[in-house]
Design a protein around this nucleic acid. Structure first.
Length: 622
RNA sequence: GCCCCCGUAGCUCAGCUGGAUAGAGCAACGGAUUUCUAAUCCGUUGGUCGGGCGUUCGAAUCGCCCCGGGGGUGCCA
């Protein structure tokens, strides 16, 4: 739990709780309902306790507020209370004393910035990537790792044990088709495995898909409309060819399943090429996903048949039209009409089979008490089916706690273009991720060169890279994840408003103050521990904003919505900008300067820490 | 058909377990710079919170019914 020493809401809640208990002993334990005031002209905090209390006891709300006030002693914390502190139907407004606020900020000024370890850390699996072999990464792939990594970092920051899982799509018939295609090309001497690139694979993947796709509709049309023997023969040839290719692809899949060395070598090469690119992108975007987080579908392949046997034997799975399903009508399993299909009538397994198997491994072997899926919102039904099946099978029951793991979908919407339709290039192709990053870096570089001409080209390059990455990630993470959002290159890279560059700028300005301070001021000045003197309104507002940090991080841990932290950080940066404008730091003197330096330092630490929790890198200067 | 998600200012979006006159940013307009980065700050203009009914002292928030948009829906992943 949170340490009560720095949190004004906790401190006030304690006082209100006892005041309420004295004013209305018959009321029992009543929530003081302390919140930060929305209008700062009325106060810093407010209690909404009087209204529900009055209702419960059948008295007038304002009378209840007056009674609470009568028993409330905040003289050491807040500015004097009076009748005027009661507003509207019974709100009680509180303004903290500057010295109290200073004490709270000093208590908050610890290495962990008010976020202490949980009494019992949880083991949490975050499913956050899911790239597919042989497919070029495009913008559609980016939300999962952005959001998933931010959630993972948040939970780590809160003291939990987080296991990232990159659920790589590296198995199944689609992959076998590509393996077949590459094997054919190698056999024909048109392809060298050594020089294989992801672009090559992307092309091969698409060609392979097409070659296995039987155009039955076309053939039917030829016959129906009598398009002539030639057209019909061509269509027939296509269908025959596709049928043959499809059959061969199935054979390749069998070879892969049997670890046939030649097919497996090609598969391994495809996996290596894809993963190298994927992990390089992660590294460049400061996404904490590395090789050790890979848990591809192929690693579950051998477990599927025994698992399905287990389900069948225990009567959890049943046959239906030749297929094997797990029914989920029971409310305990989600009350889902559509059953979870785990084996096709031809004996093949489906992605649901693998996903059920993944729940089992994550809970039974990894020990997950909570599994979070940072996955496209469209997968919601699929996930609920998988969870229902896993719970029904007992796979979700934690071996130690004996309780079902929490299974949560951190769903996200699509990235749209200006036209409100899914973000595509002018030609209609998906936007390649590497192209998007390059474009962002180029745009950032142009701005940095213009704004900071005094820096070296090497510095420009470094800064542009970081600004671009921050802009991209921030543009995604500042939005409510479940909604679609409109991607705007100009808005993202802008320094105005709630953007990555604006946030980096706030950090860089503070760093700049300390750079100057180191030159112009005795470096031994005791600002890190000097008393805070919060006399200006901007100083108070900044202090109040700082104290909200732990709550903002916890809110993300609970809601799995990183935009809440982003929103908070933007508000903190705004409070700092107002402070920066109104309160000179280096030009002030004595205690004021020391106090302001400490305030700056704290702000910088919170901003940097908060951005790092979101996975956004910061800069010393820009 | 059934299920899920979304609808807040001209645009892009916040709005916490229901709380006061619904907030930011952009755009528009007006100010502030011999200044620690003006890449900023301060102010003005702008909204029947998709519509209705209900619960409540109090609803953008909770419930029900509509309207509009998107998505999913047994043998692809």
């Amino acid at each position: 739990m949170s340490s009560p020493t720095f949190d004004p809401i906790q401190v006030l809640a304690d006082r209100f709780r006892s005041a309420i208990a004295r004013a209305y002993p018959e009321a029992g334990d009543s929530d003081p309902l302390i919140t930060a005031s929305r209008q700062t002209n009325l106060g810093d905090f407010q209690s909404n306790a009087a209204m529900p209390l009055a209702k419960k006891l059948g008295v007038k709300p304002r009378d209840a507020a007056a009674a609470i006030l009568k028993h409330l002693d905040l003289a050491d914390l807040a500015e004097p209370l009076s009748e005027a502190s009661i507003a509207g139907p019974g709100f009680i407004n509180i303004r903290l004393r500057a010295d109290t606020l200073a004490e709270l900020v000093a208590a908050f000024d610890t290495p962990d910035l008010g976020i202490d370890k949980p009494a019992r850390p949880q083991t949490i699996v975050v499913d956050l990537m899911g790239v597919n072999l042989a497919k070029q990464m495009h913008v559609g792939h980016i939300r999962s790792p952005f959001i998933g990594d931010a959630i993972a970092r948040t939970l780590e920051r809160l003291g939990h044990t987080v296991i990232r899982q990159n659920h790589v799509g590296d198995w199944g018939l689609n992959i076998a088709m590509t393996v077949m295609r590459i094997m054919d090309e190698v056999a024909a001497g048109t392809r060298s495995l050594d020089s294989l690139t992801l672009d090559d694979l992307d092309t091969a993947y698409r060609l392979a898909q097409a070659s296995c796709q039987r155009d039955l509709a076309g053939l039917q049309a030829c016959r129906t409309y009598g398009l002539g023997p030639k057209a019909e023969a061509e269509c027939q040839a296509q269908v025959d060819g596709a049928t043959e290719a499809f059959t061969r692809a199935r054979q390749v899949l069998v070879q892969l399943q049997g670890h046939e060395p030649r097919a497996l070598a090609v598969w391994q090469r495809i996996a290596d090429v894809t993963m190298a690119e994927c992990l390089a992108v992660c590294k460049r975007l400061h996404i904490n996903v590395t090789a050790e987080h890979s848990a591809g579908e192929s690693t579950y392949a051998a477990e599927l048949a025994p698992m399905v046997e287990d389900l069948l034997k225990r009567g959890i799975a049943e046959e239906s039209d030749g297929a094997l399903v797990v029914r989920l009508d029971d409310p305990r399993y989600g009350a889902i009409k559509e059953p979870c299909l785990i084996r096709k009538s031809d004996g093949g397994f489906l992605y649901a089979t693998t996903d059920v198997c993944a729940v089992r491994r994550r809970v039974q072997k990894i020990g997950a008490e909570r599994i979070i899926y940072a996955i496209d919102a469209r997968q919601n039904l699929h996930l609920r089916q998988v969870w229902g099946a896993a719970r029904r099978a007992g796979y979700a029951r934690h071996p130690v706690t004996g309780e079902d793991a929490m299974l949560e979908h951190a769903a996200f919407g699509a990235i749209l273009g200006d036209d409100g339709r899914p973000f595509k290039t002018r030609t209609g192709d998906p936007v390649k991720l590497s192209d998007l990053i390059e474009q962002a870096v180029t745009a950032a570089a142009a701005i940095v060169r213009e704004k900071s001409p005094d820096l070296s080209p090497a510095e420009h390059a470094t800064i542009a890279e970081t600004v671009a990455v921050a802009a991209l990630k921030h543009a995604d993470l500042c939005q409510e994840r479940v909604k679609d959002y409109v991607f705007s290159f100009g808005r993202m890279i802008s320094f105005e408003g709630n953007t990555g560059p604006y946030m980096l700028m706030a950090v860089a300005r503070i760093k700049n103050i300390f750079r100057k301070a180191a030159n112009e001021i005795d470096p031994d000045l005791p600002w890190p521990s000097s008393p805070l003197d919060l006399r200006e309104p901007q100083e108070k507002q900044l202090a109040l904003a700082l104290l909200r940090y732990p709550g903002a991080v916890r809110a993300v841990g609970q809601s799995l919505e990183p935009h809440r932290l982003s929103q908070y950080l933007f508000e903190l940066a705004g409070a700092f900008s107002s402070f920066y404008d109104a309160c000179p730091v280096l030009k002030s003197e004595g205690g004021t300067r020391l106090s302001r330096l400490r305030l700056c330092s704290l702000t910088e630490r919170v901003l940097t820490d908060g951005l790092s929790v979101l996975g956004i890198p910061t800069l010393e200067r820009m």
